[in-house]
Structures are given as structure tokens and as C-alpha cells.
Amino acid sequence: MSEPNKRYLELVSKKMPKSRHLTTMFRAFWTGGTICMIGQAFTDLYSSLPAALPEEDVSALTTITLILITAVLTGIGVYDKIGAYAGAGSIVPITGFANSVVSPAIEHKREGVVLGLCSNMFSVAGPVIVFGISSSVVVGIIVLIFKGAFV
């Protein structure tokens, strides 16, 4: 009984309902594009400030603003509804990353601040940090070895 039943699995893949590709792709496209346009609006706003911030600061401020907005929307229970509509449209932008950090933090608060909220904060998004930082170190070492190619 433990061997996969190929005939049954074929029946399942034939009979079970599929994702509606066109609808979900269209929704992901326009919501994702819109989130990026909101990001662009903040970038334009911050670069037009009289303080004349350098480009990197503007981009960091934009990221922080988007994270803040997402955190608030997650906290008041709106972001998951956007996510249910948009799919990847609200996962792929940095807001999706922020949502995947904030939502387990909220969820696990009831097990205490230290062992609940703090230790579960990265239960969904942890891999992003691990892969991100590890890969950047690998890139750094590659650059160190093949310095000539990057100058």
C-alpha cells in the first residue's frame, strides 16, 4: 500500500480543478506593478526634498516606507486580503517580505514576547535572510578572487 498508485495520481491531476492561470496572472501583474509605482512615487518624493539626499538614502527610505505601510496593513488585517486577491503580486515586492516577517510575529505573540514573538518572527522569511546574506558573502569571495573582472 505504500507504493504511489500512478494510475490514481494521473486521475487526480486530470480531475482536480486547476488554478485559473489568466485571471491570477493578470491580478498579479497589475497589483505588483501598482505597488512598484507607489514605490516610485515615494522615490520621487524623497529625491525632491530640499535636503538633496544621495540616491542610496532615497532608495533605503523608500524601502522603509513600504515596510512600514505593509506592517500597518498587516496589523489591521488588510494585507492578507490583498494577498488573497493578488497572489504573487503582493508576495514578490518587498512588501511581501515585510508581511511574512510581521504576520508570524503577530500570530505568536500569545506564546510570549521572547519565545513566541521574537523567536518565530523569521519562521517564514528566515530563509530569505539566510540565503541573502550567505550568497552575498559568496559573491564577495568570488569578487576577491577575480578582482580584475569587476573593477
Partner: peptide, 13 residues
Amino acid sequence: GGAFCLIGQILIN
């Protein structure tokens, strides 16, 4: 931005 999300949705589906 939309194109990246579209690719993401194809991966999900």
C-alpha cells in the same frame, strides 16, 4: 514590476 510578479505567479500556479 508587474512582469516580475507575473513570473512569480506562473511559478506559484
